[in-house]
C-alpha cells in the first residue's frame, strides 16, 4: 500500500489525484449537493413549462395572452430580477472578503429589487383576476398561474431566506456554516433568474405573438 502511494508520488509529485487527497472540503460538498437540488428544481419547472406550452392555446373562449400581458410591467420585472442577480453576485464577493457593511448593503439592494419584482407580479395578477382572468377560467390560465405563481413563490422563499441569513450574519458573524448557507442562497437566487429568462421568453414574449 505504501509502495503504491510512493510510486504515484514519484510519477506526478506535485499533483496528487482527488481520490488520494481524501474527502473534499465541506464547502465543495455542500455547494455540489445544493447544485443537484437546483437541477431537480429546474426539472420540476420543466414539467410546468411543458404543461403551459401544451395548454397555451386552450383558452376556452376566454382572454388570450395577447389581451392580458403588459409588456412594460414584464420589462420592469425582468430588469428588477436581473439587477437583483447582479447585486447578489456582489454580495457573495463581499462575503468572500468578509466585508460586513458591503454584505448588508448588497443584501438590502437584492431584497429591495426582489420585493419590487414581487410587487409588480402581484399587481399584474390582481389586475388579471379583476378582469375575470382567474385560474378557473381556462386551462391556459390554470397553467399560467401555476408556472408564474410557482416562480413567484420561489422568489418569496428566497427573500425570506435572505432576511434570515442577514440576521445570522449579524448574530453569528461569518462562520463557516453561515458562509456555506450564503453560498447556497446565491446559487438559488441566480437559478431563479435563469428560470425567469425562460419564463419571460416563453410566456410573455412568445405568448403575445398572434
Amino acid at each position: 500500500m505504501n509502495l503504491t502511494v510512493a510510486v504515484g508520488e514519484v510519477d506526478r509529485p506535485s499533483l496528487p489525484s482527488t481520490s488520494q487527497a481524501g474527502p473534499a472540503p465541506k464547502r465543495i460538498v455542500v455547494a455540489y449537493g445544493f447544485w443537484i437540488f437546483l437541477l431537480s428544481d429546474v426539472v420540476m419547472f420543466a414539467a410546468l413549462f411543458a404543461a403551459y406550452a401544451v395548454l397555451a392555446t386552450a383558452t376556452s373562449g376566454g382572454p388570450t395572452g395577447a389581451e392580458l400581458f403588459d409588456q412594460v410591467s414584464v420589462g420592469i420585472e425582468t430588469a428588477c430580477l436581473l439587477a437583483s442577480s447582479y447585486t447578489c453576485g456582489l454580495m457573495s464577493l463581499a462575503v468572500g472578503s468578509r466585508r460586513r457593511g458591503a454584505t448588508y448593503l448588497t443584501a438590502a439592494l437584492t431584497f429591495a429589487l426582489g420585493a419590487a419584482f414581487l410587487v409588480f407580479e402581484l399587481s399584474e395578477f390582481t389586475g388579471m383576476i379583476a378582469r375575470g382572468a382567474t385560474p378557473q377560467r381556462s386551462a391556459f390560465l390554470s397553467a399560467f398561474f401555476t408556472l408564474v405563481g410557482c416562480h413567484g413563490l420561489h422568489v418569496s422563499a428566497g427573500l425570506i431566506w435572505l432576511s434570515v441569513m442577514m440576521v445570522q450574519v449579524a448574530v453569528k458573524g461569518f462562520r463557516p456554516t453561515v458562509e456555506r448557507r450564503l453560498q447556497c442562497l446565491s446559487l438559488f437566487w441566480h437559478a431563479l433568474d435563469i428560470i425567469w429568462v425562460g419564463l419571460f421568453t416563453v410566456v410573455y414574449l412568445m405568448g403575445v405573438r398572434p
Partner: peptide
Amino acid sequence: EIRFDRAPGDRSVLPETEEKTSAGVLVY
C-alpha cells in the same frame, strides 16, 4: 497542492486567497 473540484458558484478553489475583488466585480 491538492486539486479538488470547484464548488458551483465559486470562481477559484480557495475563495479566501482569491485575487482582488475588483476582478470579480468586473466579471459580474
